[in-house]
Design a protein around this nucleic acid. Structure first.
Length: 958
RNA sequence: GCGCGCGUGGCGGAAUGGCAGACGCGCCAGACUUAGGAUCUGGUCCCGCAAGGGGUGGAGGUUCGAGUCCUCUCGCGCGCACCA
């Protein structure tokens, strides 16, 4: 393959233009108030040379963002450039459309792989990270993306993570006010009068912070030496490495994302994301509506009468089906439930099994107390993995206690079982085996009663295990009845009754948990927190950034202490305070990087408000300018006064589905906190989001080293060049689709670029060029400039047919780019090229417009040909990167005659030529006379003739 | 199990309810050539010499007309998974 002759000298063209763009800072994006240098093509295009335009004077903004990569040692794979190419094409298209485009790139460079290498080799993670970043930057630059490299960010740069730490302090100093539904400074937190001591006040405030300390059990991974977030645990194993994970209580920093559950859910309706992605976020948040119901624990051995009003006896449960309360035949607590300890202490657990307790309920233990102890021990020793694997067979034991159902006064046994989770709802359930699959399974195993309380609407459906809506039956108690009511009404009625008796209330629960934010690792942002006498305290802002100390050994200590605990001198402060030794998770830096791009060099602020408002689209709309009339971006929201309103937030964010919940939910959460605190001006960060589909290996399997089907972009670039690589990545199929790689496919688009090249250049002078290069390789760049234009290129006006070909191409490419249909846009460019190759005379003006259409896709080749096209006449009219996007003229698309298919009963029978101006009646007449249709009309009655103007005629006969 | 998405040539994929298979790959034939794994031209859904017939996972339905809309069904992919 490498012996084949190059289709065109991309190896000279591509570095040439990459150097040019770099030196000219062609893709620098300008903030409001910045001075635009004379001669910069953006300033020239918009008449702003040497000026300092305000937000209102700048053209409309377009913020197009890639998910920045974790720079791994392995370098780019072909999946990275897929999204990056799509956004680059859009960025170039929008520049041509007259927008001020912000298109930045950076590095999400904290993280586990660099740290694991440090553990293995003792090399500082900074060293490996820098090498990886340099390699990634080289690879990305070799693809010719139009990033504004002056805005490059790196999450491990102290000037960057200073602000990550600063944001953490804002979370630490804020609480969520449930009445305003916003984050507010702790100073607005009302302090209840019953708080007596300073310690009480302090504890109260600490309990309300958005960043707080928790002792709850966490997912501890001994192999990785760290705690993992729930999201990082898959089937009881670590997402990274697949190591076993166990539950272990540890002191951890948590972020109160649950306070934002409702807003994170509701605001999904305001953003333009794919339905499937929104659905994943909805599922993750997991809102469910129902009721909290108070059961009462019966305590024959205690002298007080049990009452739901007495907190010692109240047992609250959450249920989404309060209408099935009459069917509750037992209750279950999570084994770790703290109530159990209280009950044990208060004597609510009887000393002996109640008479008649079946042996299978006792777990073989002589007393309830012993049964509880044994079962709890058994659960604690199980890893999450075992819990999940054993999920098929539910287990549990009877506690010996009974509880009273508030709706009918019935006493039912209270169990503990690990199919009930402490962390959801109240950690306790009422079990309705008649109408809940899990309860049914459990009840069948332990022979607990199963009652029908819902009748399915379809009488043929068996009621046992029926979980849908129906009619309430057998649901009448001494004080309330819902029998006969349909499920929704039954829910409302019973909830209202419970509320009136103070036995329950309507309630909403979320699956979403607070975000476990600390890691027992080295290579992350240190917390801006110190501990004094066991109390945490914020470091003052002027002490940021908190830098990482130097270490010899990056391993965690065997007892789970983070590596930072080894840095004695760093941990111990002069005043006796001790630094927090956890670090932040990798998600922290990526939660806000899109904001840092807006003003990366600002030392005073996270982001300056003028830049933030301009780029996030909340600055006052620019004045209408006749010079700038950009096409509205895709998914444009309502217009203000006739011109497109700026999109709120990032206009387009492209990245992989692997971040569908984690990164995207965390970033939305931080953004909302910053919004509440007045630091940003939009409620959502990313207005439109698109997931690029995975690229599989040529064998249709996921690319992986072990399968040996990994494609390295560097190899493709050497062989075919960056333009061909970019083009192929987009030509494979729709951006969002999963699709297999095909190197043969690359050759196809490569040949297309070769045809474009030959459309523009003179064959004889190219042959000469090749001979010269072979003789004197060192002078190849010079010879490149001597290649002459194709002599067929003329300054004559285009024919109508030629103009039609171009304008059809403009129309298709424009519409396809607006809809992100890159594959069909490329096909339109191919159609134009194939057509233009046949023209003996090729009008220069048409070819020039074609290059504007081509340049977002194949920028290097387009720039080279653009320069060459006008070189004989003293150079190009303007820089291609800022040449205006051509508009298609509908009048140019009109044909004189149309070919109209004629159908009989919906089957194609003939095609007729008619003048474009033909009326419906003309069409009908011509169609009825169509020769090949005659045999199918003969002897038939014509019932109806459908004429689709300019499209088709269908004759219905009987 | 639940939720979401997708099924079209040998392959990747095109088709606002209106000529199914654009464009590309592969393949076949031809031209140029010392040569071709370069380039150019033509062909390429299936059956049929043709006329014609059949065809978008399968079965129904709506419509003058269905790859597209509706119902059922099968297959594949992704996500969640004891969340009460």
């Amino acid at each position: 393959m490498s012996s084949t002759r190059r289709q065109y000298p991309f190896h000279l063209i591509e570095p040439k233009w990459q150097r040019y763009w770099d030196q000219a800072q062609s893709f620098r994006a300008w903030n409001p108030g910045e001075r635009l240098p004379a001669g910069h093509p953006f300033a020239v295009r918009h008449g702003l040379e040497g000026q300092q335009p305000s937000a209102a004077e700048l053209p409309p903004k377009y913020y197009i963002l890639d998910m920045f990569p974790y720079p791994s040692g392995a370098g780019l794979h072909v999946g990275h450039p897929e999204g990056y190419t799509a956004t680059d094409i859009l960025a170039r298209y929008r520049r041509a459309g007259g927008f001020n485009v912000l298109h930045p790139m950076g590095w999400d460079a904290f993280g586990l792989p660099a740290e694991q290498q440090a553990v293995r080799t003792g090399q500082h993670p900074r060293t490996t990270t820098e090498a990886s970043v340099a390699n990634f930057r080289r690879q990305i630059k070799s693809l010719g993306f139009s990033y504004d490299w002056t805005r490059e960010v790196d999450t491990t740069d102290p000037n960057y993570f200073k602000w990550t730490q600063w944001i953490f302090l804002q979370l630490y100093q804020a609480w969520f006010n449930p009445h305003t539904r916003r984050a507010e400074p702790l100073s607005t937190l009302p302090e209840p009068p019953e708080l007596k001591t300073d310690a009480d006040v302090r504890a109260y405030r600490d309990r309300h912070r958005l960043a707080y300390v928790s002792e709850a059990p966490v997912n501890w991974c001994p192999e990785l030496g760290t705690v993992l977030a729930n999201e990082e645990v898959i089937d009881g194993k670590s997402e990274v490495g697949g190591f076993p994970v166990v539950r272990k209580p540890m002191r951890q920093w948590m972020l109160r994302i649950t306070a934002y559950a409702e807003r994170l859910l509701q605001d999904l309706d305001t953003i333009d994301w794919s339905e499937s992605l929104k659905e994943m976020q909805r599922n993750w948040i997991g809102r469910s509506e129902g009721a909290e119901v108070l059961f009462t624990v019966l305590a024959p051995a205690v002298d007080r009468p049990p009452s739901p009003a007495d907190p010692a006896f109240a047992l609250p449960v959450f249920t989404t089906r309060p209408d099935t309360l009459f069917g509750a035949t037992y209750m279950v607590l999570a084994p770790e439930h703290p109530f159990l300890d209280a009950w044990l202490a208060q004597g609510l657990i009887p000393p002996d099994w109640p008479p008649g307790t079946p042996r299978e309920w006792t777990g073989g233990a002589p007393t309830p107390r012993e049964a509880i102890r044994q079962y709890r021990e058994q659960c604690a020793s199980k890893s999450d993995l075992e819990r999940t694997e054993l999920a098929k067979e539910k287990t549990g034991v009877f506690t010996g206690a009974q509880a009273q159902n508030p709706v009918n006064g019935q006493a039912i046994p209270v169990w503990i079982a690990d199919y009930v989770l402490l962390s959801y709802g109240t950690g306790a359930i009422m079990a309705v085996p008649g109408h809940d699959t899990r309860d049914l399974e459990f009840a069948e195993k332990y022979h607990l009663p199963i009652l029908q309380v819902v009748q399915p609407h379809d009488p043929a459906t068996p009621w046992r295990g029926f979980v849908g809506n129906g009619l309430a039956v057998n649901s009448t108690g001494p004080h309330v009845s819902i029998s006969g009511l349909p499920t929704p009404a039954a829910k409302r009625t019973i909830t209202a009754w419970l509320e009136s008796r103070q036995l329950g209330r309507a309630a909403v629960n979320y699956k979403l948990r607070d975000w476990l934010f600390s890691r027992q690792r080295y290579w992350g942002e240190p917390f801006p927190i110190v501990w004094i006498d066991g109390q945490h305290a914020a470091l003052p802002e002027d002490q940021l950034p908190v830098l990482l100390p130097a270490l010899d050994d990056y391993k965690p200590t065997p007892d789970g202490q983070p590596p930072l605990a080894r840095a004695d001198a760093w941990v111990r402060q002069p005043d006796g305070a001790q630094r927090e030794t956890n670090t932040m998770p990798q998600w922290a830096g990526s939660c806000w990087y899109y904001l840092r791009y807006l003003a990366p060099d600002n030392r005073e602020r996270l982001v300056c408000p003028a830049a933030e408002q301009y780029w996030m689209g909340t600055a006052p709309a620019p004045q209408t300018s006749a010079a700038v009339t950009p096409a509205p971006p895709p998914g444009t929201p309502p217009t203000h006064g006739g011109r497109p309103a700026p999109t709120p937030g990032v206009d387009l964010y492209v990245g992989g589905t692997e971040h569908a919940v984690l990164h995207l939910l965390y970033a939305r959460f931080w953004h909302k906190v910053l919004f509440d605190l007045g630091l940003v001006s939009t409620a959502e960060p990313f207005f439109k989001l698109v997931n690029q589909g995975l690229i599989l290996g040529e064998d249709g399997q996921k690319m992986s080293k072990s399968r040996g089907n990994v494609i390295n972009p560097d190899d493709i670039l050497v062989e075919y060049g960056a333009d061909a690589f970019r083009l192929y990545e987009m030509f494979m199929g729709p951006l969002e689709m999963v699709k297999p790689w095909s190197t043969r496919g690359v050759e196809g688009v490569y040949r297309f670029l070769g045809r474009v090249w030959r459309l523009f250049v003179d064959e004889a002078s190219e042959t000469e060029f090749e001979q010269n290069c072979a003789a004197q390789p060192a002078q190849a760049p010079e010879f490149l400039g001597r290649i002459a234009l194709n002599p067929g290129i003329v300054d004559a006006p285009p024919t109508a047919a030629q103009a039609r070909t171009l304008h059809a191409c403009i129309k298709k490419v424009t519409e396809d780019l607006d809809a992100l249909r890159f594959n069909t846009a490329i096909s339109a460019l191919m159609i134009f090229t194939n057509e233009a190759m046949t023209w003996p005379a090729k009008p220069r003006s048409l070819l020039r417009e074609f290059l504007v259409l081509l340049h977002p896709f194949a920028p290097h080749l387009a720039e080279e040909l653009w320069a060459k096209l006008d070189a004989p006449r003293g150079g190009s009219p303007a820089a291609l990167a800022y040449a205006p996007w051509p508009a298609y003229e509908p009048s140019r698309l009109v044909e004189d005659t149309l070919e109209i298919p004629v159908q009989v009963n919906g089957k194609l029978r003939d095609r007729i030529q008619v003048p474009a101006a033909a009326t419906d009646a003309d069409l009908e007449r011509a169609a009825l006379a169509a020769p090949k249709a005659q045999p199918f009309l003969a002897g038939k009655t014509i019932r109806k003739v459908i004429v689709v103007p300019r499209k088709l005629v269908n004759i219905a006969v009987s």
